[in-house]
Nucleic acid binder design. Structure first.
Length: 861
RNA sequence: GCGAGAGUGGCGGAACGGCAAACGCACCAGACUUAGGAUCUGGCCCCGAAAGGGUUGGGGGUUCGAAUCCCCCCUCUCGCACCA
């Protein structure tokens, strides 16, 4: 046994051993209760970064802890392997995307193995494997049959840089989520998944995830789904201009304000805007406004309320008022009908527009506590109240009015109660090569024809040109595109759109249950066994992307009979980012740490600015390379620091000295065990409490208190940082025990052995290699990973005397050591005899006292 | 603007109505050393020589007792952002 802690040698040896023993294989047929621990699988970019390390370290502790607690744990790993970077690499470096991806997976797998994560590598999968995406294609065909997948000509979000369309979820503030380019509107034929069919269910599901998912993720999903209960109202046009358009339909959540509607506002994209103005004197002005507003980014449009009168009028179906039709910059084309009724007294935006253009303001809702005067209104009243100037509805409350007005409209044929969602169908078409081909062909005679099941997979052709110019490389592959129609045999063209890569990540967790299934997408018996994922761990950035798609897709798989669960992820932990301070020079921008010395830039000698903690990124030059750290300290130190430095949901501030501290701790633990291993009895029976010395008893008690704390922190709360802190305290206590000669006590060796054994077990999920080594050093030949989690012995925790805190008027004034279970009378008597306490009583006697047995006495004077 | 979260030593962070600052980092002093960037010991919120007193962004409240619960305000971070 080596005296020095040498992580490189230890870690390689144990990793090999785990590999050989298949230590982390999940048995499909075990009698033990299952536990499915999963972390979001990585995109194979080429290198593991600290964000991955933190994510997977958290997941690994959870998986290993559950395994020790007797669960049959499924903890798989795979690769989210389709995506644009592979194609860019092909263009820039002339490497085929498949080859580039394969090589990246190889090197990242090596990195992950070096971290010692407890994966069942037999279940590894890569989504670019035809054996994976063939089943995705099959599910697509089933969705097509059910109308859950459909094709539609629609304005799409086009990213000019990525040369593809994007789903709404993938557009952030008008820009591409991946590259940041300004997204353009393009009308294209696109494939969609009917996620709107599941909008209500996804929303209700959020309620059931309450407490199991972070509140903010649920809030973000609820907002994204955006359910609004209201009414659709149709306003007849004075002069029907457009073929079939004798009316304009709006959506409102405030049907109760309809008598206050004095105008109509249309989005500039609304087809009737130019139609109404055409050929009139207003045409030029309207066209100018429409062009100007359309040219603006969405964020710029918000600047101020602007509009233009189109020249047309319609009639308010209930009040009979003749209402001018305006085009306004704030009306969204993509929400509702792209048209709204203008109620300036009760909607702030309408109010501002009315003020700017002198449109009439009519108060039709009066709040309960005051009377609104339309002449002196400074802002819209958007709150509830009673309806006035609303004919037959006068006196109704807003809520009652909403229902009554909708009913009346329906009865008269001018509208109906309806529900509007913000979420829209998921656009899954991508005009890119490196993705799963959509399995249909276009036949001149038959139209869209599904590829027959038995012809799946539609495999990506390998021999396509990557020029970086002009559209999808797939479309340029004649061999791929030219096919004969499966239905009529005539000439046909294969679909060249591929699926959004978020489709692959919407079901990979289910495929992990049965990755070797060769006859169908999923094996229901095994998905029943493993799903749902008990604990999912990943970044918050997927709150409305991956996580909502996966929830939708899981329900589709359920309705297709492949899985039985509604929700894919029973519990979600969103870990914080890994941050590090940044260094900036005003001349040379972001600097690497070694480009600065003594606060100055080495190149230009200017003083540098130490920036705040920022998420690690190459561009900010504040990344830390996991490989370098592992080489220097070992994987255990890296894991320990990641878990100890901050609670998992919070951002972790990287600190080189903190890593050093983690390494020191492992060395201390190592020395402690090796310093006494000859003297402690590894086979020692449970220490006998009777006749034990006080110091032995104290260590024994602290051991069990630590077991309890770590168990609570790790298993129930995921507070790994405090769990580690508790083990550090026990190491300190055990070291002191040895120094103080505790081993000379009769029970000393047994008590110390128990402490060390417990430490090794409690730390095993966090630092699996060094603990495995120490387990052997303590004479154990069993596999630590399969060892049962220690149990705290309540008896050991009991003390015969306790310290009771004495407060006077709620302030700490003394401490008393009394027998456990001492009566109130006894404690009060002692407290009153205490000099420190008596001084604060000012000679008076307590008016009241609060007694918490074995804890506290509060005297009130 | 709306929503969520946070605000505690020099720093990361503990304390789920009952001893504020566990654990670690940094720092200071000492020991061992030719040496220390190893290891060990001690110190380390503020005032005070001490006894003692004060302290959890600010203000109010509930309570015997509040970092913790409630209300108002301030600051920061993140998300959404004209959703009719």
């Amino acid at each position: 046994m080596k005296e020095r802690y040498d992580p490189a040698e230890i870690e390689a040896r144990w990793q090999e051993r785990w590999e050989r023993d298949g230590a982390f294989r999940a048995a499909d047929d075990s009698d033990r209760p299952k536990y499915y621990a999963l972390e979001m699988f990585p995109y194979p970019s080429g290198r593991i970064h600290m964000g991955h390390v933190r994510n997977y370290a958290i997941g690994d502790v959870i998986a290993r802890t559950q395994r020790m607690r007797g669960r049959e744990v499924l903890h798989p790993m795979g690769w989210d392997a389709f995506g644009l970077p592979a194609e860019n690499a092909a263009i820039e470096r002339k490497v085929h995307p498949a080859e580039w991806t394969r090589a990246n997976i190889e090197s990242m797998r090596v990195q992950l193995r070096r971290m010692g994560f407890s994966y069942d590598w037999r279940r590894e999968l890569a989504t670019c494997d035809p054996e994976y995406y063939r089943w995705e294609q099959l599910v697509f065909l089933r969705m097509l049959e059910r109308g859950l997948a459909y094709r539609r000509h629609a304005p799409a979000n086009w990213c000019p840089s990525c040369e593809t369309v994007l789903a709404n979820e993938q557009v952030e503030d008008g820009a591409c989520w991946r590259c940041g380019s300004r997204v353009e509107a393009r009308a294209l034929e696109q494939w969609f998944f009917r996620i709107t069919d599941y909008a209500d269910e996804l929303l209700e599901g959020c309620d059931r995830l309450e407490g199991a998912w972070p509140e903010r993720v649920l809030t973000m999903q609820r907002n994204w789904i955006g359910k609004s209960i209201g009414a659709e109202i149709r306003f007849p046009l004075d002069e029907p201009r457009h073929a079939g358009a004798g009316e304009i339909s709006v959506f409102t959540t405030r049907a109760d304000t309809i008598f206050g509607a004095t105008f109509l506002s249309l989005a500039v994209e609304h087809p009737l805007v130019l139609e109404i103005a055409r050929g009139t004197a207003r045409e030029a002005e309207v066209r100018e406004f429409v062009d100007r507003v359309r040219g603006m980014a969405r964020s710029e449009r918000a600047a101020g309320k602007e509009g233009v009168f189109t020249g047309g009028f319609c009639t308010n179906p209930l009040s009979g008022r003749r209402m001018p039709i305006w085009a306004a910059n704030f009306v969204l084309a993509e929400y509702g009908t792209g048209a709204v009724m203008g109620v300036p007294a009760h909607d702030q935006r309408d109010f501002e527009l009315a003020r700017a253009y002198d449109l009439p303001i009519v108060v039709v809702i009066q709040p309960e506590d005051r009377a609104l005067d339309p002449e002196r209104l400074t802002e819209a009243w958007e709150g509830p109240g009673r309806m006035v100037l609303s004919g037959e509805f006068d006196g109704l409350t807003s809520d009652a009015g909403k229902v009554a007005v909708a009913k009346a409209l329906e009865a008269r044929g001018f509208g109906r109660a309806t529900i509007q969602f913000r979420i829209r169908d998921w656009c899954i078409s991508r005009q890119r090569y490196w993705g799963a081909p959509i399995p249909v062909v276009h036949c001149e005679g038959c139209g869209v024809v599904p590829v027959p099941d038995e012809e799946l997979p539609v495999v990506l052709p390998l021999d396509v040109p990557f020029t970086g110019e002009g559209g999808s490389p797939l479309a340029k592959s004649e061999a791929f595109v030219r096919v004969s129609c499966p239905r009529c045999g005539g000439p046909a063209r294969r679909e060249t759109d591929t699926m959004d890569t978020f489709v692959e990540s919407s079901w990979y967790f289910a495929r992990f249950a049965c990755p070797d299934e060769t006859t169908r997408p999923l094996d229901p018996a095994r998905t029943r066994r493993w799903l749902p994922v008990d604990q999912y761990v990943g970044g918050i950035e997927h709150a409305v992307l991956h996580l909502i798609y996966a929830r939708f897709y899981t329900r589709v798989l359920r309705d297709l009979g492949y899985v039985e669960v509604d929700e894919p992820f029973a519990h979600l932990l969103t870990q914080g980012m890994v941050c590090k301070e940044t260094i900036a020079c005003e001349e040379h921008g972001w600097l690497y740490p070694d480009e600065a010395a003594d606060g100055h830039c080495k190149r230009c000698s200017r003083p540098v600015t130490i920036g705040r903690m920022e998420k690690m990124s190459k561009s900010k030059r504040n990344v830390v390379d996991p490989d370098e750290l592992i080489a220097r300290y070992g994987a255990d130190t890296v894991r320990l620091f990641c878990l100890f430095a901050a609670p998992p949901e919070r951002d972790l501030e990287w600190n080189d000295q903190g890593v050093e501290g983690a390494f020191r701790f492992l060395n201390r633990l190592w020395r402690l065990v090796h310093g006494v291993r000859e003297r402690v009895s590894t086979a020692a029976a449970v220490p006998d409490l009777e006749g034990m010395t006080e110091r032995s008893r104290t260590l024994h008690r602290q051991t069990h208190r630590t077991i309890r704390r770590v168990t609570d922190d790790v298993a129930d709360r995921f507070h790994f940082n405090t769990a580690v802190a508790a083990t550090m305290e026990l190491v300190n206590a055990a070291s002191r025990f040895v120094e103080d000669g505790g081993l000379d006590d009769e029970a000393g060796p047994a008590v110390l052995a128990e402490a060390l054994r417990s430490l090794v077990l409690l730390l095993a999920p966090v630092v699996p290699h060094v603990t495995a080594e120490l387990w052997a050093a303590l004479g154990r030949d069993t596999s630590l990973a399969a060892e049962p989690w220690p149990l705290a012995d309540d008896g050991a925790l009991e003390q015969e005397s306790v310290v009771v805190v004495v407060q006077v008027n709620g302030r700490l004034r003394g401490r008393l050591t009394v027998p456990r279970g001492a009566s109130e009378e006894h404690v009060v008597e002692q407290a009153l005899a205490d000099e420190g306490v008596r001084r604060h009583l000012d000679g008076g006697s307590p008016r009241k006292r609060v007694f918490v047995p074995d804890r506290l006495l509060n005297l009130v004077v």
